[in-house]
Amino acid sequence: MTALALYVRGTSPVHRSPAGLKLLALAGLSVLLFAVPTVPVAAGALAAVLAVGVVAARLPVALLARQVRAVWVWLVALAVVTAIVGGVASAALVTLRLLALVLAAAVVTATSRVSELVAVVERLCAPLRLVGVRPARIGLLIALTLRFIPLVAERADRVREAQAARGGTVRGVRALVTLVVPLLVQVLQLAHTTAEALDARGADDDEARSGRMRG
């Protein structure tokens, strides 16, 4: 799970504070940045985020840089257009605000384990009980998907190898179709067997008892 996640191991106070609190702080920050759209606030927020991420949580700068690199095309385009239409000040505001938010989100996700975030999601989903959704099922869905991702990737490799072994060298659009169709049939069967295995272990028990969800 951790191999896939953006989590960076650590023992800093930022790592140790509850994931729910960090998510709340992130939400609060985004509300603040849009409610008070001034350059000092945005610059202050960016400085604070960097202080928390680099100094307090001791996250590698490269990790944060990677998140910024992913949006830099947008940052530049946004800054240029905003500068032309609204002046340099508003360009600075838009850029600083976006940087602060992207980095803040990166800090939260790098300092919280996926399992903690799953727990927060389950807690947040608790009100959905009223409409018949059980939060534990959402936890199950997340766990299933995390298990399926490497499996699907592995099956895709196997299908590709099998086709190469038979001398199939289709290229372009057709190649994607001939790869994905057998892959889909295989993974749908995989889903089916997994569901049977889960049911055999009682995954649908409480559903039968509550009888609230359509079966």
Binding site: L6, W74, L98, A105, T109, V118, I142, I149
Partner: peptide, 25 residues
């Protein structure tokens, strides 16, 4: 569900992007 996984920090978008940041851009 896929977006939820991205939101809780899995780098599943192209280029290994993920986390809550992509939902505010």
């Amino acid at each position: 569900l896929f977006l939820l996984l991205v939101a809780i920090g899995l780098p599943l978008l192209p280029g290994g992007r993920g986390g809550l940041g992509v939902f505010v851009g």
